[in-house]
Design a binder for these strands. Sequence first.
RNA 1: GGGCUGUUAGCUCAGUUGGUUAGAGCGCCUGCCUUACAAGCAGGAUGUCGGGGGUUCGAGUCCCUCACGGCCCACCA
Length: 944
Amino acid sequence: MTDQATPENPNDLAKAYDPSAIEEKWAKYWVEEHLFDVPEGAPADGSKTFTMLLPPPNVTGFLHMGHMFEHAESDILTRWHRMRGERALWVPGTDHAGIATQMLVERQLAKEGRTSRVDLGREAFTARVWEWKQQYGGAITTQMRRLGATVDWSREYFTMDDNLSTAVIEAFVRLHEQGLVYRGAYIVNWDPVLQTAVSDLEVTHEDRVGKLYHLRYPLADGTGSIVIATTRPETLLGDTAVAVNPTDERYLALIGKQLALPLTDRTIPIVADDWAQPEFGTGAVKVTPAHDPNDFAIGQRHNLPSINMLSKTATVELPGSKYDGLDRYVAREQIVADLDALGLLVAVKEHPMSVGLSQRSSSVIEPRLSNQWFVAVNQAPASGGESIAAKAIAAVKTGAVKFTPEMYEKTYNEWMSNIHDWCVSRQLWWGHRIPAWHCANHHITVARTAPTTCATCGSTDLTQDPDVLDTWFSSGLLPFTVFGWPTVDGKPTPDMAAFYPTDLLVTGFDILFFWVARMIMLGTHFMLDVPNPDGTPRKLADAVPFREVYIHGLIRDANREKMSKTKGNVIDPIEIIEKFGTDAVRFTLASQASPGADIPLNEARTEGYRAFANKIWNAARFLFMNIDRAPNSGVWRKRLAYSATQTPAKTSSISFEVHPETPVESRWIVSRLSTVCADIDRALKVYRFDEAAAAAYQFFWGDFCDWYLELVKLRLNFDEGDNHPGLITLGIFIEVFGAALRLLSPFMPFITEELWQALNEKLDESAMSTIALTRYPQASDFPSDPAAERDMTLLQDLINTIRGLRKEMQVPEREAAPIRIFASDPAVANLASANADMLAKMARVASVEIAPATLHGNGARSTSSFDVQVLYERQIDVPAERERLTRDLAKYEKGLTAANKQLSNEAFTAKAPAHIIDGLRKQSAETQILYDKTKAALEALPPA
RNA sequence: GGGCUGUUAGCUCAGUUGGUUAGAGCGCCUGCCUUACAAGCAGGAUGUCGGGGGUUCGAGUCCCUCACGGCCCACCA
């Protein structure tokens, strides 16, 4: 704790809150004390569990604002559930991130001027990647520790850990056994820079203006020609047909004829296929089965050969051809020029098109025919049952998995219903190697461990498939592999029994298909085979990887722009944290977080929440100062003892004592506390972090500091012995403050921990422990007191009215002035006289005079229940007062007219619900009073 | 081509199933160093709820339409 005690400030907190002085200490404490580690298996005491999997960041990654946002939301929920007495488990880990990591190490090699990965060899290269991983990997998890994320570090995993790798192999082999994995030559998205296939999802599309070339292909018999249209003329070298639509009358006569393919010595047929659209281009399309997915399909339909004419690096690969070895774009220009020279270039038109780019390398994807491994997602397993996609669709349709916001269910269904087989092989070295072995006779043996002989021909000449699996294949298994799948005996492990299905997944929509959908597919597929803990067969509803998915928005900059390095508008979380403190940043994020909503980050807002932290800090200073002043009495110590023993497990038999003679502000604040507890719980249940944060903020600043803390200054007198009401008030003050800290703790863990422990220390509580393991305040813990709330509201009205009047009359800030209250209701008058000290403190009232009637005009301010005058020599500013009254009058008149018009509408009174009509009547009556009063006051003003 | 989504105060956003006079933070104006806090206190101003039409006793909220944004999916040579 910082120690800047001064005679003026007889407490030991610094005058302003300095996050940097305390955050590291607590971050370290939370980790080192293993406070959030969760033991294996179900809790012995039968308490509920709450389980989440951290979306594993790439091992190469650094923390950005998006992580911090996601982690803040997740941590708020985890802390909240934990404080509610649940066994909260948040499992962290990192992903080996095949492509990203391999790229990074390759780049490093290049920078060192060392040999390429190919020269290094596979074994040495992967060793090098592991080395890199040990040394630099997992920067994010280090940063997470500093930010106080309450994950269970004892369970931290890496997707290439031995047990997880074994599970990946098991999953692949089982899919193969079920006939759901196959290998074949298909058109895939080829990244010529990374030299690997990538899945459809890893291709992003960009609109560009390209060129559409019209090329003439002469008939082989010399009787004519046909003009085709293409955007990629270089692929002409791989053409094996030209297709026209069977209904296209222009070409009917040509169907079946042979064309002399220009620049080659090959002839190719003209085929009829529906794919060719008469309206597009010339209506005739060249068919290149090896380099276009549609052409591949046409090739299949018409039994056309495929000519693979592009290499792995997208250069022309046609030995003997003059174009052999040319880059695809160089070849394009060359070929167009050559065709032009031959008079076969008919036209070149600008053509808007969408170009497929590799998400990782940004290179233009080249569709390429190659041998790849696929997961058959639409096929029923050999052993029976439904396809992977069917189960994944059912999981969401039946509500076993729920999305927030709900609209993502639609997106998910749409995608899942049109899903293609999943290309899972990658031509990389870093990742889980595919457990398949090829023999010299081109047979493939898929096995859990390296086989000695080929399963088909018995050959012993075996080499393992060089490819590795898509990173998302392994991460898609995580919800059950982290809990011990596959199990030796087929029964669930204790962890699986306790924590699967997990309760919630917090993630962004950017990995909805990549990861969320894959987890649902693989979870429902594999876990359906694992029986329930009691031995009964598992149902789909309990095979799902998580019961709920909460999808958050994107972090944007202050102008709602997406953050990107090229735009240079990236906000570094560490920087902003150093500037404002972790709690302030967390609160900023929470205060704007509602399902699906993007977060525009602007510093002004964070500045405001830094001020909020400072406010909390200073409220503590004030409390501590009073504790120091107070005699060492059991009265308030009992209060704190009560507070400190509030463990999450204690869920009942709690009663907070408030005596009827306790001053109104204390009864009021306790009642408000009850309400705000309910509000926060309600909001967090539906992921309205913004509403929860606003409720906590408003309560602490608006109610607790602005009103309670000021009023309590009237009560905290300790010079009359042990049972003085001041001590009772101090006890309530301590308890409400403690509860407020606990309420805020999930949102602002650092400052609340610091102050909670400081408070405990101050009260010599020996059983000190982290605030994170105390009970989350519940509405039922505190008595609701409608009478106190009503009285307090009236007093606040009175004080606000007097303040406004004083301001208008320009009564000097420090000068007290007498007031006169006119109220027809004696209860109002009584309340005012009984709380004259409150009025004096809050509105500088010198004395209160009561007049039993109402007053119209004469410099009074009015509400519907009272009029009040400030008795001061200075006259009110007549023109200003007239202006204000005129404005009010117009407002009331408008409201009155509208209300009365509606009330006299028979259709309204006949159809509207009673409470609406009553409400409107009441409002109309009140407005009428205000109108009359205002009108009278206006008339009473001296003439202009 | 298909789908989703947004437009509310100068700025960034709330506004639950349609219901009483639309809110918050920041910013702005005025006055205060009032012993927890100037990262503070008190008071104040600010809205044709994107345009138009419809349903309804009643619309920021539901429907249609237009305008301008944003996002996702897709095998348009």
